[in-house]
């Protein structure tokens, strides 16, 4: 086995643009779920609306990416309001089902053949990236020689992405140490108690949904910039589930939980992927093809991830950095 490739590839992913995407998505979910107790299973929908908004402003209307970002932010807020109004008065599991349904509605409508002239159908959209790449200050690969390297484009996305992560974490920290954050945490514990103390629980939940959704929108922007394209497959239901896994690995209701979670998650996933890939590759693979071929090897990381999510939730629900006494998820 080639351990060098294993390490290099894993580090590349663990700090790379994809980890940034899931980190931002998980920061949003942390606000929703970790602090407020809202089960938003439609984070992929927020990401998709924002990503497509930014791209289409450029591809359809010929506007700048900046305006696209602004439109994406506005549409995300509108989406949060639309989802929040019918569901935030309901029980937690209703919100879960409605948000997951809404994300699926968004995905099916955007990817519909009917709108493929404007939205690209299943193929998605490209041809917007130039202005972003023009701003790229890096013109050759960056990294530590012999350990890990990123292409200039990737490193540019990473730079912007990790800066966004820093900003998002700072905002989360500022909010969560304030009385506002205290109300959110109280709602997570018992919303009737908070209501009995004269707080407008509904309004706080709505604000939480919007703010967490906006962090999801940032993730959507980074998805588009990372791949130089947006397509429906980037925003499938599983994306939200992966983001939850990221959050739970790092620890919910911890400001830096999603950051640690994203890095660890992508490191492990890539290690598994490369390891099984190597073990099934070549003429005389370590694992015989009758047991596992290379297609099956690519499934192993998802199998392990499902198993990992279950075990994590059962044996260490507070995540790696969480405090069990202060754990967000328990007997309700």
């Amino acid at each position: 086995m080639d351990f060098n490739e294993l390490l290099t590839g894993s580090l590349q992913q663990a700090l790379g643009p994809t980890a940034v995407v899931y980190c931002l998505a998980a920061i949003g979910l942390n606000i929703h779920f970790g602090y407020t107790g809202l089960l938003n299973f439609g984070q992929a929908g927020f990401m998709m609306v924002a990503g497509y908004a930014m791209v289409t402003m450029s591809t359809i209307w010929g506007q700048s990416l900046w305006l696209g970002v602004l439109v994406g932010v506005i549409l995300t807020v509108i989406l949060a309001l639309m989802l929040g109004v019918p569901t935030l008065r309901l029980r937690a599991d209703y919100l879960a089902i409605v948000t997951i349904a809404a994300a699926e509605i968004i995905r099916q409508v955007i990817s519909a053949a009917k709108f493929s002239d404007d939205l690209g159908g299943q193929d998605g959209l490209t041809g917007f990236i130039k202005p972003f790449r023009k701003m790229n200050p890096f013109d050759e690969p960056v990294g530590i020689d012999g350990v890990v390297m990123w292409s200039p484009n990737d490193f540019w996305v990473m730079t912007v992405g990790w800066l966004l992560v820093v900003a998002a974490c700072l905002i989360t920290w500022l909010l969560m140490r304030s009385p506002w954050g205290r109300v959110l945490k109280s709602i997570r514990e018992d919303e009737d108690a908070v209501r009995s103390l004269g707080k407008n629980v509904y309004a706080y939940k709505m604000q939480s949904l919007i703010i967490g959704g906006l962090f999801g929108a940032l993730a959507g922007f980074v998805v588009a910039l990372r791949s130089a394209t947006v397509g429906p497959s980037f925003f499938a239901t599983d994306v939200t589930f992966f983001a939850y896994t990221v959050l739970l690995i790092g620890g919910a209701a911890r400001v830096l939980g999603p950051v640690a979670g994203a890095v660890i998650f992508w490191f492990l996933i890539t290690v598994l992927d490369i390891a099984f890939g190597q073990m099934t590759a070549g003429a005389d693979p370590i694992i015989p093809a009758s047991i596992m071929d290379s297609t099956q090897a690519s499934l192993m990381r998802l199998i392990f991830m499902g198993l990992g999510l279950m075990l994590l939730m059962i044996y260490r629900p507070q995540g790696i950095f969480g405090d069990r006494r202060e754990l967000a998820i328990d007997g309700r």
């Binding site: 905002i171 500022l174 909010l175 304030s178 009385p179 506002w180 954050g181 205290r182 109300v183 945490k185 109280s186 997570r188 514990e189 018992d190 009737d192 108690a193 908070v194 009995s196 103390l197 004269g198 707080k199 604000q207 703010i211 006494r325 202060e326 754990l327 967000a328």
Partner: peptide, 29 residues
């Protein structure tokens, strides 16, 4: 009884105070 289990006793008390400026989103930061 509805206490906020995962908050400390003093935080439980602070939540009770009314008209807190820091409970509005913008001022909170």
């Amino acid at each position: 009884t509805k206490v906020l289990s995962k908050l400390t006793v003093i935080e439980n008390m602070r939540v009770g105070a009314t008209a807190q400026r820091g409970e509005s989103l913008l001022a909170a930061m």
